[in-house]
Design a protein around this nucleic acid. Structure first.
Lengths: 146, 146
DNA sequence: TGAAAGTGTAATCGAACCAGTTACATACTA
DNA sequence: TAGTATGTAACTGGTTCGATTACACTTTCA
């Protein structure tokens, strides 16, 4: 995964859908709320549809809608849907590499780094879209919107 | 932080230093073990020096050396030393943004994502360079180096 | 039935980032 | 002083990514 705004955009997008409720929302409208281009939203939406978080209707009055209540959508599910690369990358070395350390470090590192990322994912699994939106709504009501 | 091999390179580099022990190791030699260019190693080394993990001597017979035993160097310390950007980025929106959700989502997201990254860091804090090298050495002895 | 409002998708552009490399100044040792 | 190192700047090529444009396709509704 690159230094990446896609995850934030995805959560924001689903947040808008959750906020609006049952009515389909167009990618153009979401793009305005997120501050980007409709195509960017649709690119992300494609993956969310593929993973069953969202359904899309084409044509007039169409747009996107959540397939389940926000309480049943965890941030981990959103993260997984985006199919990002790993945060860390362990460069390959070639099998005939001279240094024994070089050859052995790689699998060890991969294991450790994967475990570290799993910790992060586990945390995201504990937070639902509903949790996020509760905080957002609270901020709106209190007027802390800046 | 970008999809990033620097962290892996840094751990690998310090692993070589730990393996060699007290004798200074040149960036050229490390670069060969890591499979990259000496300048890349020196760029990373600069930061490790800045954070006190490593000391460097110039001139003939010079090179780098750990400043403390591997058991006292955690992966989290290495990670911090690299001063990478955050894994996630929450795009800025401008204060006069029209959508109230857009304005309020940002701080909430930032908080959640920071917490997620802290989980990862906490895990890295529990693992020392010595732990990693123990696994590496075990792999070498057993001959599982591929 | 046809216009309008949507999405799907490909292609292109420019900016940013990064590893690799070269080159050279500087520092240290023998 | 010669040789071995690091420090650092500069350039390059590849990759990624968001933004944008363009166009085909789908659906609704008047």
């Amino acid at each position: 995964m690159a230094a990446n705004s896609r995850f934030a955009i995805a959560v924001h997008t689903l947040g808008v859908l959750a906020f609006v409720g049952d009515k389909p929302v167009s990618s153009g409208l979401i793009a305005k709320s997120v501050g980007t281009n409709p195509v960017v939203i649709r690119r992300i939406m494609r993956k969310l549809v593929k993973h069953g978080l969202v359904e899309v209707r084409m044509g007039t009055g169409g747009g996107s809608r959540l397939t389940k209540p926000p309480s049943e959508i965890s941030l981990a599910a959103i993260y997984e849907s985006l199919e990002e690369e790993d945060v860390f990358e362990v460069p390959a070395l070639g099998e005939d590499h001279c240094c024994p350390i070089g050859r052995s470090v790689r699998p060890v590192l991969e294991e450790v780094l994967a475990a570290a990322q799993n910790e992060m994912r586990a945390y995201l699994g504990k937070i639902s879209l509903e949790n996020v939106m509760d905080s957002v709504n609270a901020a709106i009501v209190v007027g802390k919107s800046r």
